[in-house]
Amino acid sequence: MSAILAQGLTRIYRRSAEEIAALSGVDLTVEPGEFVAITGVSGAGKTTLLNLIGCLDRPTSGLLKLLDRDVRALRGKDLETMRRQHVGFVFQDYCLIPTLTVEENVALPLLFSRALHQRDRVKDLLARVDLQHRSNHLPRELSGGEQQRVAIARALVNNPEILLADEPTGNLDSKRGNEIVALLRDMNHIKGLTIVLSTHNLNLANRADRQIKLADGRVV
């Protein structure tokens, strides 16, 4: 069973009479425990591909399976459950909730999955990303690297099988960027987490098990 299987995956956006193909017939297989880097220039379709894999968007055509489940067949609550339980998402600009503390941000997915009794996981994850001493701070009191580590902890709190990271180092300097990738690498090694990371930084991409390059919405 593949963690991610895409065949002929296509996403077309329609604006008025114009059709824009963000992805055109992408074939892709990611095995469980793999660390894959999606590379390509801006506009190549990296974010669109991650949004489709993360069940944030729906493909126009093609096959997409996550953990052997056909995503196109999922509707409403099943899609929400897939997002909540099986996929973790890390965004380029962290996307933390500014009014909540570090600990509350990390615990937020537990609130949505009605699993606050697993709060010990929050402390464990904060310790793993080395932010236990910042648990009561607000996001604005943290550096960019720290905020991204909080976002990673949040993405992992529901114990997903797949972690998707969309340009997670895009807003960080190279030192902080390396730290983040090292952290992801550790998670991949220690927990056997399947990670798909998008980046246009080849140095970071080289640290993945495998690279998939996108250009104009196609795998090249």
Binding site: G76, E80, R83, G88, F89, C95, P109, F112
Partner: peptide
Amino acid sequence: GVMRAIGASR
């Protein structure tokens, strides 16, 4: 949108 992405239902 972020809340939906990290698991919030409608």
